[in-house]
């Protein structure tokens, strides 16, 4: 049974429809890459999953429960951990405070997050607003892990980072997959890095899922047609 399922999901911003039918399924322990060019509905799909935007049609099921009508904080409590686009840490809290404010009981503790990101331990007393972009990204991932999720959603987690930091983030994602078996939904444009961690892929085109399958089946023709690479 899939941990996360979307069937024919549609969503609108005011009077503008953004999603026209998104389908995807993500099993436990799998890593799914949600791909597509800019403006195709990837982040909107994440917002619908997290109930930050209500779907106007279709079904979203997580861990066997339909999410329609549920407030966003309850979805997160069911086990959906979001690393939002643009990091969005609590700017005026310190690193340590950011982590413990969101903490829920489980395997992920402050010590384990510090083990994953030693830099966060070094910067524990520093305000999040004063961190570098890479450190803020580590904090955003650490904060999501501290909620002890069943599903980790990474929305453009490496965007805007220096190459060395991007690789560090990809290494961490690979380590989380290898060591924890956490289900991960990742949005990114880097095919090469995604190929290191992703088991499956779904491609969105103008708000619709137009291709899905094993990541290894994603050939140059599909990538060229839908991703422009």
């Amino acid at each position: 049974m899939s941990l996360l399922e979307l069937e024919g999901v549609e969503a609108v911003y005011g009077t503008t429809q953004a999603l026209f039918g998104v389908d995807l399924a993500l099993g436990e322990g799998e890593v799914l890459a949600l791909m597509g060019r800019n403006g195709m509905g990837k982040s909107t799909t994440v917002k619908v999953i997290c109930r930050l935007l209500p779907q106007s049609a279709g079904l979203v099921r997580f861990d066997g429960r339909l999410l329609a009508g549920m407030p966003a904080h309850r979805v997160a409590r069911l086990g959906v951990g979001l690393v939002p686009e643009g990091r969005r840490c609590f700017a005026n809290l310190t690193v340590r405070e950011n982590l413990i404010a969101a903490a829920r009981p489980g395997d992920w503790t402050l010590a384990r997050v510090h083990d994953l990101f030693p830099r966060l331990a070094e910067r524990a007393g520093q305000r999040a607003a004063l961190l570098s972009g890479g450190e803020q990204q580590m904090l955003a991932i650490g904060r999501a892990l501290m909620t002890n999720p069943k599903l980790l959603i990474l929305d453009e987690a490496t965007e805007g980072l220096a190459p060395i930091l991007r690789q560090a983030i990809w290494d961490v994602i690979a380590r989380i997959k290898r060591e924890t078996g956490l289900s991960i939904l990742v949005i990114d444009k880097s095919l090469r890095e995604l190929s290191q961690v992703a088991d499956k892929a779904v491609i969105l085109e103008r708000g619709r899922s137009v291709w899905s399958g094993a990541f290894s089946d994603l050939d140059a023709g599909v990538a060229g047609q839908y991703l422009g690479v």
Partner: peptide, 21 residues
């Protein structure tokens, strides 16, 4: 954690919701 989450909610309520509060 309660006080920290309250402070965070004052700054950006939507982000607090996204972490389950």
């Amino acid at each position: 954690p309660f006080g920290l989450a309250l402070t965070a909610a004052r700054q950006v309520p939507a982000r607090v919701e996204a972490v389950g509060l």
